[in-house]
Design a binder for these strands. Structure first.
Lengths: 224, 224
DNA sequence: AATAAAATTTAGACAAATCTAAAAATATGT
DNA sequence: ACATATTTTTAGATTTGTCTAAATTTTATT
């Protein structure tokens, strides 16, 4: 059983950001990177780093950088779990579109009630992925990343199912909606332009030209 | 169309408390009363009173007392609307019991998203009352108080439908659950003891003795 | 390896929300 | 009406989270 520590909203936001910056490999995160990501000043990050280190949520060595402790990682996963479950709730139960959910979920993820989030999970029938295709960590912090590649990595005549988006900005998501590209669709790469890396693709018998910027922001589960 | 002003959580809690203390009649609320209710110090209330007066949410005259402005009243009703809708959501959609919802709704009421609360309202099919029988203000701040009396005011052999509770503490609500007294039940007053004002009542062919403390915390809609 | 550039931390300040202790204003009792 | 009690406000301090500007450490360049 994990003890639940009460963190402030600011502390939770730092933990979440550090988790996202860590990504796959284990490298130290710089004060500057966190400040950049959170739209704040490096000196503020230093101040917070001391508090989080005191609470044993991060490893922090002055001038060297920051990484999450195991406790910090679990905390981050709990917050991300809440964020993503709320996103599913907003889309599935309240008909929000996938470009509207982030902002509200940023608030809802800080609600403190274990029962609440477990019941939401149950109401949604234990979803595995959020509306952008990102995996939802389990209650005990397990986190199964899908085996996916970027559309830009698919070879010509390759096929795959669209399973996620890298960029989750409203403008990108609205672009996909407008062109009726949604998760679950099968994409077939017909051709690729060497000059600008743009692609000709087919979805549901509809053919498109998409720029490399689009292709590098769509996650695909490759088919054989 | 009303402008939405962004208030801090603390400001919202003060506004809500002042609204509840005002009640029906228009009298000035004292610094002490607010401090008492919010479990804080009178000096803190004075500090906040200045801020809220600056934002034109309250009328405040030093040493005299506090009352809500029209803007303050509308703000209070918007928060109470959110609180009560979330309570209905928790009970109807997530199977919370009525003694568990308050604490969580205290957090959820501060989520800032007009669309969110309107969609929740829609999902719940526009409920008029929360799980404790309190009316839910409409979007435009209309607030219809039910025509109700306390069970203790019912005469002997009087009948009425249980429509609300005055005390919403978990201990009282659990007591009612244990004795299978719920909103919607018809209560018949069989007898009353002059000495301690306790009552003998009948609900669904079950007879009870209840103390005056119970009778003064149950709201009844009197039948003919 | 010395110096310049970049990143990071420290020091000191500020706003929000709270507190304690003291001062001021209002209310009460005879 | 006057003294006393109560209520309310002020003054100054504290905590959290932030900032700017200066100092320090690390990294990069020649």
């Amino acid at each position: 059983m994990f003890k639940i520590f009460f963190l402030t909203r600011a502390e939770e936001n730092y933990i979440k950001t550090i988790f996202h910056l860590e990504g796959e490999d284990t490298h130290l995160i710089s004060t500057n990177a966190i400040a950049e990501e959170m739209d704040t000043k490096p000196s503020s990050v230093t101040d917070m780093a001391k508090k989080l280190a005191d609470k044993e949520l991060i490893h922090y060595v002055k001038y060297q950088g920051i990484s999450l402790t195991e406790k910090g990682r679990r905390t981050a996963l709990a917050i991300i779990r809440k964020h993503r479950l709320w996103e599913v709730f907003l889309v599935d139960k309240l008909d929000f579109s996938w470009d509207e959910v982030h902002e509200v979920a940023e608030q809802l993820e800080h609600i403190k009630s274990e029962k609440l989030i477990d019941k939401i999970d149950e109401l949604l029938e234990f979803p595995k992925y959020d509306p952008h295709g990102d995996p939802i960590p389990t209650k005990d912090g397990k986190f199964q990343e899908r085996d996916k590649i970027l559309l830009s990595e698919l070879p010509i005549s390759g096929k795959g199912v669209c399973v996620g988006v890298k960029d989750t900005s409203p403008s990108f998501l609205k672009f996909l909606d407008k062109n009726r590209i949604a998760l679950g669709h099968t994409i077939h790469v017909l051709d690729r332009e060497v000059f600008d890396e743009s692609m000709k693709i087919e979805i549901d018998d509809r053919q498109f030209h998409i720029s490399n910027q689009i292709a590098t922001n769509l996650y695909i589960k490759q088919l054989n």
